[in-house]
Design a protein around this nucleic acid. Structure first.
Lengths: 219, 219
DNA sequence: CTTGACATAGAACGGATGTTCCGTTAGAAT
DNA sequence: ATTCTAACGGAACATCCGTTCTATGTCAAG
């Protein structure tokens, strides 16, 4: 075999490994590969698997059944797998109520509802939760009824962040860009035609989360 | 065990199976699960695996080493792989120019720039392309500068759809909800506080795509 | 108390699966 | 012709790994 080129057998093997793995959720055994690629001897399969390792298409774990995985050179299965973040949809967000926060207890698989977001849309990937906006009260934040807002629980914020805040005196939740200006805080609507709110008493301000992403689905 | 609830052991097992599988590319063996979940007996691991099958968290293949896979209830590797749609980012959208449409020639994977979206956010999955909004001119559609709009090329539309239209007489692109009303067409801004536009002459109206999804990333 | 369902532990069994060894063939180089 | 190497086939071997069986403890129902 010329270096860098694959024989027909090896191509069939790779193809089968890809198909089998994505179909079954686990890789094929040596004998299963042999059957699929018309190779009667397990040693030959083993031999060619090692060639494929040499060429950088596979990695193998010694003495482990089905202990192979495709490298990035081919299907980026493992990569894509981690490219999706599962975010629990913990509730709805109204203007008239504080943001419902997720319990710290709930592991991922207890969440009844969740949405999946590709990681490249998000800067970080933990402490995330999602809320569905109910009502038209967030239109000054350019957020519609039905939109899904993905937030981090982090209570620290930097100038310009869009945050969900609970205003104690007004008893109101809003989404605004937040800026510290000397002793007071400016809450700036995303809609540039609308006026900011100024908060002089920090007691009235409760930052409940930082908005990372807004998703709007048309039906 | 109460039906529908998981014991601590079972949670540990699931968590380990997830971690192991995504880390190694193949599922763990019964004994590996036992070691990780502090279970000395393989039969107990087997027993609890079957319970997890009963609860719908797993499927198993008989007499196959590492023959496990997580079900959709958790998020399955192979499924997640196909659960991502790659959408070409074909350009930017201005108010002052028609929507740039993707060439029919370019296959998905040749696109230099693309975004990946999980399929459950989208009703269909072909003929999709994405545009980044430039400028504040779409704020009446509740769409901000920098937002990404995912559209279908389909030129047919139904009442209530949000579409990208090119208005010939005004030489302007806008995003509006569209309604047929007798002989004329009503273009309704998403922002409920704003007034609709009425188009009497259908010649002036060119529907360039149907908006399926709007994504806003905060930096 | 007795019973039965449930969860667990340990051990043994046997099939599934990776590994190794030996022999053969084909082609290229010397 | 001889030699070397890559590739292959078959079989035996060792062990990895799923399955099964028996025994034990718990707890609520009868």
């Amino acid at each position: 075999m010329t270096k860098g080129k694959l024989s027909d057998r090896q191509k069939r093997m790779l193809e089968f490994i890809q198909r089998f793995t994505s179909g079954n959720g686990y890789p094929p055994s040596i004998r299963e590969i042999g059957d699929a690629a018309d190779i009667s001897s397990t040693s030959v399969v083993n031999y060619n698997l090692n060639r494929l390792v040499d060429e950088g298409y596979l990695t193998r774990d010694q003495n482990v059944s089905r202990g192979l995985r495709l490298t990035e050179k081919l299907g980026r299965a493992a990569e894509r797998l981690t490219n999706v973040v599962r975010i629990p949809l913990v509730g709805r967000i109204f203007a008239s109520e504080p943001v419902p926060l997720p319990g710290t207890d709930s592991p991922v698989f207890d969440a009844e509802e969740a949405i999946e977001i590709t990681r490249d849309l998000l800067p970080s990937d933990d402490g995330l939760f999602a809320l569905q906006v109910k009502g038209d009260s967030m239109i000054d934040a350019m957020v519609n009824d039905g939109d899904i807002v993905v937030m981090t629980r982090a209570s620290e914020w930097r100038n310009g962040d869009m945050v969900a805040v609970w205003l104690r005196d007004r008893e109101e939740t809003t989404l605004k860009h937040i800026y510290r200006e000397g002793t007071r805080v400016r809450l700036q609507p995303a809609n540039p035609t609308m006026r900011p709110i100024y908060i002089d008493n920090p007691e009235n301000l409760e930052v409940q989360g930082k908005v990372m992403l807004v998703v709007r689905q048309m039906n």
